[in-house]
């Protein structure tokens, strides 16, 4: 029962945050002085990308889509309605194309490098951190300085250096993009074999940074646990080290588990730039192109998508922590 209440509270909270995120996504573009559609279409005209008649058409389309002739609160509901119907609008820069199509093309590539990086990085990083903390000595010193360095290297810096050394100088892996010229994305072994050579470098540059961050966190947790009373008590009782380590590991694990969800935001941020460096055709490259062209619907769709991904990850971690750690349930349901 306590668990159900705990989950219910977390779900409600996530919904509140989601509404705030929607509000931000809706309000901020409207803070541009004047009518956003006029401003944006004006910028399009300055860029010389589109002719007069086309501009007129674009203008009308957006006035209708944003509902700019209506009062603000109605506009918001139009926006929310569209989002909930899965309609993210129409791209400014690639005019007739819908944002949904653009996102659908980019999203799988982003997921393909980020999801494995998160899973592999989290597991390896935590193991490394725990072992380093427990063994101590040169292993700890080496692993700690190494991890600290990796975690504080900006992800894109590692990406740039890897790209230069491995692909440009070494010629071992292809330089950029996601698959060889002339191929089209399809579910076949040949395409997969080709795409994976392009996948390695972005994956490694993300996962190395992530391993570093997790290892540093886990090491601190484990060292903190190593000095706690129950460990000393166990030592005094002569309990086998291996037995104590299990407790240490489980206690140190919990914050890391919540950290997994929170670090996803950082990983996505790093991933966006990593894609840029490798010209990987994911959300990062799409966002970059959209910013360059003032393609507001695309930008706002991507920011919304990132927010949703992070919110879902947080919620999942909260719920799972509730299952794993009975203390959290007890505290949450006892409080307020």
């Amino acid at each position: 029962m306590a668990l159900a209440r705990y989950i219910g509270r977390k779900v409600a909270w996530t919904l509140v945050v989601f509404v705030v995120a929607l509000l931000l996504n809706f309000l901020l573009p409207r803070l541009i002085p004047g009518n956003p559609v006029d401003t944006i279409v004006g910028q399009l005209a300055q860029g010389g990308g589109a002719g007069g008649e086309q501009l007129q058409q674009i203008h009308e389309q957006y006035m209708k889509e944003f509902g700019l002739d209506k009062p603000m609160w109605q506009q918001f509901f139009i926006y929310v309605g569209n989002v909930f119907q899965g309609d993210l609008g129409t791209s400014f820069a690639q005019y007739p194309a819908s944002v949904n199509t653009l996102i659908a093309q980019a999203l799988p590539w982003s997921i393909a490098i980020m999801l494995p990086a998160i899973i592999v990085g989290w597991i390896v990083g935590n193991l490394l951190g725990a072992v380093a903390a427990f063994k101590g000595g040169w292993l700890d010193r080496g692993a700690f300085i190494g991890s600290l360095f990796l975690s504080s290297v900006p992800p894109f810096a590692l990406a740039i250096i890897l790209l230069f050394l491995v692909a440009v100088k070494g010629g071992i892996l292809p330089v950029g993009g996601a698959y060889s010229f002339g191929l089209t994305p399809e579910f076949s072994l040949a395409f997969f074999g080709d795409a994976i050579t392009y996948w390695w470098l972005p994956f490694w540059s993300l996962v190395l940074v992530y391993i570093g961050g997790q290892a540093v966190g886990m090491r601190s947790m484990a060292i903190y646990e190593l000095g706690s009373d129950y460990v000393n008590y166990n030592r005094g009782l002569g309990v086998k080290e291996g037995h104590t380590v299990r407790y240490i590991f489980r206690n140190a694990m919990l914050p890391q588990f919540t950290g997994l969800a929170l670090s996803i935001a950082a990983l996505i941020t790093g991933g966006l730039i990593t894609e840029l460096v490798f010209s990987y055709p994911g959300l990062g490259s799409l966002l970059f192109a959209a910013i360059g062209q003032n393609d507001y619907p695309v930008i706002s769709a991507i920011t919304l998508l990132i927010t949703i991904a992070v919110l879902i990850a947080n919620l999942a971690a909260d719920i799972l922590t509730g299952f794993i750690d009975p203390r959290i349930r007890a505290v949450q349901s006892g409080e307020r």
Binding site: L24, L28, I306, V310
Partner: peptide
């Protein structure tokens, strides 16, 4: 808590674009 749940980069991008 709301501010923590929304990725900082998202807010910064939205503000800078505007």
């Amino acid at each position: 808590n709301v501010g923590l749940a929304i990725p900082v980069l998202v807010i910064i991008i939205l503000v800078s674009v505007s």
